[in-house]
């Protein structure tokens, strides 16, 4: 049937029940609460699956305690949900493990990520934990761009990279922490060697 021939029916708009927008309540690990729309939550695969599994109604959302997100603080979660609300309804890239080489950072995202590197680190961590593919893409791209044209010495400072010696010392410390007796045995062995004994026994 063509569009011109389609039957025209007058509709009383007031009679149509308006579907109430569904919101969910989340709580950060520092007890800050956020109300986030259902559509925005779809940007996070982790949260989307969580709310689907919970099967909350609007009444449940109001009556039950907010959903706790234990690993993320309020400051970071605020940025995450701001991003999700701004990008709600947008297509979600398929997470097939591939990495887009060209990632455009939209103006809104650039402003949102105009934060110190400590908070940017937490934002990437949260995007990874909550599986928000596009937020992870843009935030990673911002940090990847920080490497452009830098020397190894500059990169060490920007990314706080330990030197080989520091890595070695950390490895030794971790081994010792795992087995505190190891150092004592080593010292005892060295002491015996100094005293001229070849055998430990």
């Amino acid at each position: 049937m063509s569009v011109e021939n389609a039957p025209v029916v007058d509709v009383d708009e007031a009679a149509i029940p308006v579907e109430k927008k569904m919101y969910y309540r989340f709580e950060s690990n520092d007890k800050k609460e956020f109300r986030v729309s259902e559509l925005a939550i779809q940007q996070s695969e982790t949260l989307n699956r969580l709310v689907e599994a919970m099967g909350y109604t609007s009444e449940d959302v109001e009556n039950k305690p907010a959903i706790a997100i234990e690993n993320i603080d309020g400051k970071t979660l605020k940025l995450v949900f701001q991003w999700c609300e701004h990008h709600k309804g947008e297509a979600i890239p398929v997470d097939d493990g591939s990495v887009p080489k060209i990632v455009e950072i939209p103006e809104f995202d650039a402003k949102l990520m105009d934060i110190d590197n400590g908070l940017l680190f937490k934002l990437i961590w949260a995007a990874d934990y909550l599986n928000i593919v596009q937020l992870l893409n843009v935030s990673c791209k911002k940090v990847a761009n920080m490497a452009q044209g830098k020397t190894p010495a500059q990169l060490r400072r920007v990314y706080l990279l330990p030197s080989d010696e520091e890595d070695e010392a950390a490895k030794r410390a971790a081994q010792e922490a795992q087995d505190p007796r190891a150092r004592e045995v080593e010292e005892e062995f060295e002491e015996r060697k100094r005293q001229g004994g070849n055998s430990f026994f």
Partner: peptide
Amino acid sequence: ENRKFKLIQLPIVARQKLMKMMDNVDLFEL
């Protein structure tokens, strides 16, 4: 402390994604 980005403390998936977004010449420097 907040000016620096602790790259090696990122979860492995995020760290690899981030590094793959770098130019190869920057990876060489890294």
